[in-house]
């Protein structure tokens, strides 16, 4: 029998099964003692990327902090589906104040811990893309600039999903939302200049900035663990597909998150003090159409006729990311 070459991934998933790993190397999610920080029973949609992302990130942060952690949450899906009072899915001390102030609330919590001599208690702030890149942006920038001891996590699902799928500053070009419908001369969201918040975070020179997707939980966990090992302002921008808002199949959440990375549309990297220190290379490069075609929000690009001009502009954006971050180093052919 010919020797079979083992690739580091199973067909179509790229994920190494946990059972092949030494117990110490297994993901936090694979451990019996994970904290289930966002526990079951909440009201997120089937296939919600944000619920997954929050669970991965916070369980890793809880593990890193030895369970000594408190969280501030912005208004949004994550807040609404987790806390329909008197129910709560949070198994850590958690406060929700407003939509636009989670970074400032978290900064106040960190100041309180410092004043009380309880710096062993770590502070995490979290919001969706609306609460981070739009309405919470001033508070986020202030928190960065002061280098407050907060890990802030943005779960980016590229729109205001909680209010009925409206466009945010993180919505990609051409995407259909409730207020960027595929009507008129330029169907879908306009091609703006973009709002690259990870890059803006890096421009503040804060100790740590990273991007990650829910397709690679071990990578997300490792970045959270790394961030929790540092002090000062840290930022993780997690890409979390939204089946409801994107018009994608709920079982495709992980696939879409992976395709966002493998097409180059969402570069996955780490940076310290404003300099990129590591990138996650593309393993099998995919054309953006592979990603776009699986989402109804881009359906107008393919029917009734294919809008190749817009698709090429989107591809060009992915190509720019690939060149800028050197994402093809070590890529395998399809």
């Amino acid at each position: 029998m010919a020797e079979q070459q083992i690739k580091g991934y199973q067909a179509g998933t790229f994920v190494i099964g946990n059972r092949l790993l030494d117990p110490e190397e297994r993901s936090v999610q694979a451990r019996m003692d994970r904290s289930n920080t966002l526990t079951s029973g909440h009201r997120a949609c089937r296939g919600c990327g944000e619920a997954l992302g929050a669970r991965y990130a916070l369980d890793a942060a809880m593990r890193a902090s030895g369970g000594r952690m408190i969280a501030a949450n912005a208004t949004g899906c994550l807040e609404v589906f987790s806390t329909p009072f008197p129910e709560s899915s949070w198994r850590l001390p958690w406060v929700h104040s407003l939509f636009g102030n989670a970074p400032a609330v978290a900064a106040g919590m960190a100041a309180a811990m410092k004043a009380k001599g309880r710096e062993d208690v770590r502070v995490v702030g979290q919001a969706g893309d609306g609460g981070t890149v739009d309405i919470g942006f001033a508070c986020l920038s202030g928190m960065f600039e002061r280098n407050d001891d907060v890990l802030f996590i943005c779960y980016d699902n590229q729109g205001y999903m909680n209010t009925g799928v409206q466009r945010s500053g993180a919505t990609p070009p051409a995407a259909r939302t409730a207020n960027t419908k595929p009507v008129g001369a330029e169907p879908g969201n306009v091609f703006g200049q973009g709002k690259d918040v990870p890059a803006i975070a890096m421009a503040h020179g804060i100790p740590y900035v990273a991007t990650a997707t829910v397709a690679e939980p071990r990578d997300l966990e490792a970045k959270v663990e790394r961030a929790m090992g540092m002090r000062g302002a840290r930022y993780i921008h997690a890409f979390v597909p939204c089946p409801l808002g994107w018009g994608s199949a709920s079982e495709d959440t992980i696939l879409l998150a992976r395709l966002a990375k493998e097409t180059g549309l969402f570069p996955v990297f780490e940076a310290e003090h404003g300099e990129v220190t590591a990138v996650s290379p593309i393993r099998r490069r995919q054309p953006v159409t592979e990603y776009l075609q699986r989402q109804k929000r881009f359906a107008h690009l393919f029917a009734p006729t294919e809008n190749s001009e817009v698709i090429e502009r989107i591809q060009a954006g992915a190509d720019r990311n690939i060149a800028r971050f050197g994402l093809l180093a070590g890529a395998e052919g399809p």
């Binding site: 406060v95 609330v105 106040g108």
Partner: peptide
């Protein structure tokens, strides 16, 4: 907002 966080 920071006062809210600190007070909480």
């Amino acid at each position: 907002s920071a006062c809210i966080g600190a007070s909480a």
